[in-house]
């Protein structure tokens, strides 16, 4: 039985820790600054007017989110349990009347809160800047992009926690997080492109393999919410629109939710079942 008061206490502590974390503050300021800059710089091509829009700002922020959010989500998540384990703080925490699942959930929710606050600040600053300049149309697609960014951040945090529950050392966890980030952002895409060309993958195969990647799920869902079709993605995009129609966006949302829940469940299972101390640690 999970005690919510315990989870809440650990969540509050993690949230406070994250807000005191120098790197996290730097990321928050950088993300908000870039988002704000994009909101004021992006305008329709070939015009010299200040015809700004939420849609264009959202489209620009999608690329920013694709690069930064997985990095911070994965590293924050992966460093958390592993670093506490390495310093011995985790042993002390677990010697209190708490369960392992409560500890994991408390830590997850705390970091999730901090991460979502960062995104809210960045998107909020950009949105506010647009609103102050009189832009009022297409706020729906902008808010949808924000929601999708939230889901992506939580999915990356879940993956980070899964790494953290397995890794014994912080450096191992961080190394794993960086590799996963590289794989999801760059290597995965290039690999799929190369394999599909050389192996002559059918178009549906290319789409499914691509869409398994949570980053691609976020990207496709964002593009859909911004311009209602996937022409920009080429044949695979056209195939997806044709095959799934209006169901595509809900399916992608469910996919992102699964990327949040499944790694977190796996992390909770691993963390609860693993032997708490190695023999070397237990030698008195």
């Amino acid at each position: 039985m999970i005690d919510l008061a315990t989870v809440q206490a650990i969540t509050a502590k993690e949230l406070r820790d994250a807000l005191r974390n120098r790197w996290f503050v730097v990321f928050t300021v950088a993300f908000a600054g870039i988002a704000l800059a994009l909101s004021t710089m992006v305008r329709p091509t070939g015009t010299f007017t200040h015809a700004l829009s939420y849609t264009r700002t959202a489209a620009s922020l999608v690329n920013l989110v694709l690069l930064f959010v997985p990095l911070i989500g994965l590293t924050l998540g992966s460093a958390n349990l592993a670093s506490d384990r390495e310093t011995g703080a985790l042993t002390y925490l677990l010697s209190q009347p708490v369960s392992r699942v409560e500890v994991l959930l408390g830590k997850y929710f705390g970091l999730a809160g901090a991460l979502l606050a960062t995104l809210t600040l960045g998107f909020g600053a950009a949105g506010l800047a647009l609103a102050l300049q009189g832009v009022a149309q297409e706020t729906g697609s902008y808010l949808m992009t924000v929601l999708l960014a939230y889901l992506l951040a939580l999915a990356m945090l879940s993956l980070g926690f899964l790494l953290s529950s397995v890794a014994k050392k912080t450096t191992t966890a961080l190394g794993g997080a960086l590799f996963l980030w590289l794989f999801l952002v760059f290597i995965g895409d290039l690999g799929i492109m190369g394999t599909s060309v050389t192996m002559k993958f059918p178009i549906e195969g290319v789409f499914f393999v691509t869409a398994i990647n949570p980053l691609q799920m976020f990207k496709i869902a964002s593009i859909l919410s911004i311009q209602a079709n996937l022409e920009v993605l080429g044949p695979a995009g056209l195939y997806a629109t044709d095959q799934f129609g209006a169901l595509l966006l809900p399916l992608l949302l469910v996919g992102l939710l699964l990327w949040i829940v499944l790694p977190l469940l796996a992390a909770a299972t691993t963390f609860s079942r693993q032997e708490k101390f190695t023999y070397r640690e237990a030698r008195s």
Partner: peptide
């Protein structure tokens, strides 16, 4: 519980 060396949070 009092461990040999306690690691507290900041």
């Amino acid at each position: 519980y009092v461990p040999q060396e306690t690691v507290f949070y900041d």
